[in-house]
């Protein structure tokens, strides 16, 4: 959606925030057909498997930790800890697939669109205004998980 449709508060934020530019832009050539690929999701909807540690909205600059969501997780049971006022939470509350489409990935495996669903998926908390620790600490761990699981394609879904 265009920035002009954001609330005044959030419009001001996105206009004044110092967005970090990716430079140079990396490019990994995908050598396989999508139908042969193992696919993982990386979502920033703040979803957590029941009983797992909640995200902490009080951390200054944003909670930069991550949670693993296994491929066999019950999507309807996931708990959302995102508290941002920037978006309407009713969609994720009604159906977490709207921001973490794990059920859809299983269906796309069944119909042959993708090769397989990765065993582990990554859940992050969005609204991280100070991304230093996310990049320095969390990103290498997330990369480690995806590499260990021999993931071919990672799909990133913000809210």
């Amino acid at each position: 959606m265009p920035l002009s449709e954001l609330s005044l508060k959030h419009r001001l934020f996105v206009k004044t925030y110092r967005w970090r530019e990716v430079d140079p832009v990396p490019c990994t050539r995908l050598e396989k057909e999508i139908g042969e690929c193992r696919v993982a999701l990386v979502s920033s909807a703040g979803l957590v498997v029941p009983g797992d540690e909640p995200f902490d909205e009080t951390i200054k600059g944003g909670d930069y930790s991550y949670r693993v969501i296994p491929a066999d997780a019950d999507v309807s049971s996931l708990v959302e800890y995102h508290r941002s006022s920037a978006f309407d939470h009713s969609g994720v509350e009604a159906d977490a697939n709207v921001a973490f489409p794990l059920d859809r990935l299983h269906e796309l495996t069944a119909d042959g669109t993708i090769g397989e669903v990765a065993p582990r998926h990554v859940s992050l908390m969005g609204s991280i205004t100070a991304p230093g620790r996310l990049v320095a600490k969390t990103a290498p761990e997330v990369v480690g998980i995806l590499r260990d699981d021999e993931v071919d394609v990672a799909l990133l879904v913000p809210v």
């Binding site: 990716v22 490019c27 990994t28 995806l146 993931v151 990672a154 990133l156």
Partner: peptide, 16 residues
């Protein structure tokens, strides 16, 4: 995050 994953040799695409 996306750039870090791509840099590690895993192809990525995001929704915006």
């Amino acid at each position: 995050m996306q750039a870090e994953i791509e840099r590690a040799g895993i192809a990525t695409a995001s929704i915006t």
